[in-house]
């Protein structure tokens, strides 16, 4: 069995080689303003990996979270993060702000 350091180095090399393959990943954007998502519905293509940019315009941190998308990520105040989702079957997937759970929206894959 290779040492952990060797295995990690090999995986990092593979990741570096794999990066160009995702250069044309479709993107979508969300903004959190006044603790609400804008827009509340984001349409994305089904069957493809999506690069979702989540920007927090508020001072307070927020957390993009979705059990259906298997993702949770803190978005510090005034910053933007990238969340990779999918490939998704056609359908609607709910997400919410875990620091303000009444703030909700949907990713709709078509």
């Amino acid at each position: 069995m290779p040492s952990p350091l060797t295995a990690t180095a090999a995986l990092l090399a593979l990741l570096a080689l794999a990066q160009p393959a995702f250069a044309d990943t479709p993107t979508a954007s969300l903004t959190i303003r006044n603790q609400q998502f804008e827009p509340t519905e984001v349409e994305v293509p089904a069957g493809q990996k999506i690069e979702l940019h989540v920007k927090n315009s508020d001072v307070q941190p927020a957390e993009f979270e979705s059990g259906e998308l298997h993702r949770e990520k803190v978005v510090p105040g005034g910053q933007e993060v990238v969340v990779f989702i999918g490939p998704l079957r056609a359908g609607s997937y709910e997400f919410f702000n875990d620091f303000h759970p009444s703030s909700r929206g949907h990713v709709v894959a078509r």
């Binding site: 990690t8 995986l11 990092l12 593979l14 990741l15 794999a18 990066q19 995702f22 990996k49 298997h70 993702r71 990238v82 969340v83 990779f84 989702i85 999918g86």
Partner: peptide, 14 residues
């Protein structure tokens, strides 16, 4: 956490 979940073929951490 070395990679963003779902970004690459594997998610990698140490």
């Amino acid at each position: 956490q070395i990679t963003e979940p779902g970004q690459y073929f594997f998610n990698l951490g140490f």
